[in-house]
């Protein structure tokens, strides 16, 4: 299957860095972005199997990033991860084609499991 390439997008650096470290310890290759624009730049130069995207970010929010990703990089699965339990955001996210909508805090095993399934689905498509 090869190494799984993951992009983590979150404006909270305190969340981003420890998460990256934990995921890498489990054998994933992780890149991080602290904004939607940042993420788009990375996506333009590298291929990712899956992106884990925070919904609430200043500037371009997670849903807007998702919208653009589905258009330009449909092969990269998007998992939304948010601290706000919102029906409206969840519905929008799923309708826009998110692979999954997860609430923070998320168990590392659950996130890993979701990311692996998302990547597997995306690779086959």
């Amino acid at each position: 299957m090869g190494e799984l390439r993951l992009l983590l997008v979150d404006d909270e650096v305190e969340f981003l860095e420890p998460m990256k470290a934990r995921l890498e310890r489990r054998g994933l290759a992780c890149a991080t972005a602290t904004s939607g624009d940042d993420a788009l730049r990375l996506l333009g130069s590298e291929r990712f199997d899956c992106a884990v995207v925070d919904v609430k970010m200043p500037g371009m929010d997670g849903l807007e990033l998702l919208r653009r990703m589905r258009r330009t990089w449909p092969e990269t699965a998007v998992v939304l991860l948010t601290g706000h339990a919102s029906v409206e955001l969840g519905v929008q996210g799923m309708e826009l084609g998110a692979f999954e909508y997860l609430l923070k805090p998320v168990e590392l095993d659950d996130l890993l499991d979701t990311v692996r399934r998302a990547a597997a689905g995306a690779r086959r498509d």
């Binding site: 919102s86 029906v87 519905v91 799923m94 309708e95 909508y101």
Partner: peptide, 25 residues
């Protein structure tokens, strides 16, 4: 929120056969 998860789970199980539920919710 629970019902959102139910709708999501159902659609994931049923290959998005019931996406209209998102709009209803």
């Amino acid at each position: 929120m629970d019902i959102f998860v139910m709708v999501k789970d159902l659609n994931q199980l049923a290959r998005n056969r019931h996406v209209g539920l998102y709009e209803a919710l």
